[in-house]
Design a binder for these strands. Structure first.
Lengths: 202, 202
DNA sequence: TGTTTTTTGGACCCTCGGGTCTAGTTTTCG
DNA sequence: CGAAAACTAGACCCGAGGGTCCAAAAAACA
């Protein structure tokens, strides 16, 4: 965030963040401030006017993008049939996770895990952990309503999350895949939901 | 690998690789050659006698460690009951993947995915991909024998792999967890195998 | 033992990149 | 319009690190 409330151009601050996210995604943590400045069509000094250092710039960037991760985690509506709710949850997850942009960011967090463990932890808790917790709560609710038979909701949630995202996400992180098409997403989501229901149905 | 067959000390080459793997795991791709030399109790020049550059050193290191990834992927024996075979497969996978050393290496590959895509691809194909392929073949065999009802073995294998490794691996990559204890591994493996059998049983 | 090769440690070169400084221009606002 | 604050372009400082060089010590080998 801009350090002073004076006449600083807020829009430039945003442009810098946008450029930073681009360049860092492409080049990793070792991206240079010069290239970020060039991409943002801004002088290097201006970056230092807005964010005091490279570390602060990255922190600001993470703060802003954590919201993007957290957003698509909304729980499936409790009124649907559990199978459809699970499939819809899976679709949301796949769309959010298995694409080049999300993977580039995730790679960034992983890269920083050693130097800035608190950042990585925050991302983990705002992302996967929160997501699984909501899913677990949903599973517990459905079990109480007699529509599912889940004895350990937390573990079941991890299983389902892993089924859906596991391999695809790893291959994306290694840069092997080119993302999934919408029909592929539909198919995986539907199939995962169907199998999960067989495994945990009443 | 050592470049000349002369009087070069082969053991030193190994010591260098060992040190390199340690330091790179801790510090990431940006680890300095000086620290590797220090850790290997060797002069920097000696490293350059054995491996021409930092890139070559890392390539040699990856070559040697790919074997370690591939090793523990042996398929469960076909004579066991499928549930026990799956549980054993899951245990092997968890032990191999969810520990600080393996995660540090995987982080390295992910970090290099942008600069050296071929390396990342090789790791992926020698590791997860080969593992899933063997599991899929096993599932197909068991289905042919009438002990399972798997219509799409490749997808089922990804589901099982994801269930077992998915979340735990991601949290390790982000440096959040401290690995799993042996009883935890047993429990997860057994439960995953049990649920998978309910989902895909005859 | 003498020759050849390797190893060592440390100085050294050079590039890259974070961060600062400056001088001049543009913007904002009273 | 005039003053204060921001912005720009680019030079600049400095530390880090890849890679090379060198003279002396240590092995290896015949």
């Amino acid at each position: 965030m801009p350090r002073i409330a004076g006449q600083i151009d807020l829009a430039k601050g945003e442009a810098i963040l946008d450029a930073a996210i681009q360049v860092l995604s492409e080049r990793g943590l070792s991206a240079s401030m010069e290239e970020i400045a060039r991409r943002a069509r801004v002088s290097k000094q201006t970056i230092y006017n807005h964010y005091g250092s490279k570390a602060e710039l990255i922190a600001a960037l993470v703060d802003r993008r954590v919201a993007d991760i957290t957003a698509p985690l909304e729980m499936p509506g409790a009124d649907e049939h559990p199978e459809e709710a699970l499939a819809s949850y899976a679709r949301i997850m796949l769309r959010a996770l298995v694409n080049p942009r999300a993977s580039a960011l995730m790679r960034l967090y992983i890269q920083g895990a050693t130097e800035a463990p608190d950042v990585a932890r925050a991302v983990f808790e705002a992302g996967p952990k929160a997501s699984r917790a909501r899913l677990a709560a949903f599973l517990a609710r459905e079990t109480a309503a007699g529509r599912l038979a889940v004895d350990d909701p937390a573990q079941a949630a991890e299983f389902f999350g892993g089924m859906v995202a596991g391999t695809y996400q790893l291959s994306e992180l290694l840069g092997v895949d080119r993302g999934l098409t919408e029909p592929q997403i539909d198919h995986i989501a539907a199939e995962a939901a169907r199998r999960f229901l067989r495994a945990y149905g009443v």
